[in-house]
Amino acid sequence: MSNRGRLLVISAVSLIAVVFAVVFSTRFGADPRLSPSPLIGNPVPDVTLDLVESDNSLRLRELAGQILVVNFWAPWCVPCRAEHSDLLALADGFEDLGVSVVGVVYQSRQDDVVAFLDELGRGYPVGMDDRSRAAIGFGVRGVPETYFVDRDGTVVAKITGPISLGLATATLDRIILGEPVESARTGEVQTQP
């Protein structure tokens, strides 16, 4: 091999190795399952929910003009139990400011939902997700996930994992004031019972 050839091989291999190192260094500690939602900045998906303990259904797009907090949850989901009281508080506190909280039940039976609500309380509409259409529409990967929709019907933020009252309040405040908001990841999501 000529001198130039040797130099070429060495520099090529070193380059590849260093690129490798850089690539993987950025990945240490990152959760390979975490991914951004392509929904942000797009109109809220056109989904219709069958409300629990009611004969009515709810079409999300009919709530246009209001700020929406769409919370995907399930009675078998452990972090969902933790965030439930915060959601109740949020629904109560922001009701007068034109904010609607909607719960969407993911992969569960109605009996379990009712039992959960009996135990932890009611305060906002909760709908069953027939054939997972809402979850598919929003691109849900696990529960809990919470989407924020502004008055124009645009999805502006997503919280992956349980919400906290502080984070949710801050997010809503910014939406009300028309300021840009950011998505966040607060913890693990559960994918199956």
Partner: peptide, 20 residues
């Protein structure tokens, strides 16, 4: 399959995959 690591919608036994 959105909730799986490397399975496809066709392969995953999960309910979401079935709905999809």
């Amino acid at each position: 399959c959105p909730i799986c690591t490397s399975e496809s919608v066709a392969d995953s036994p999960s309910q979401v995959a079935r709905d999809l």
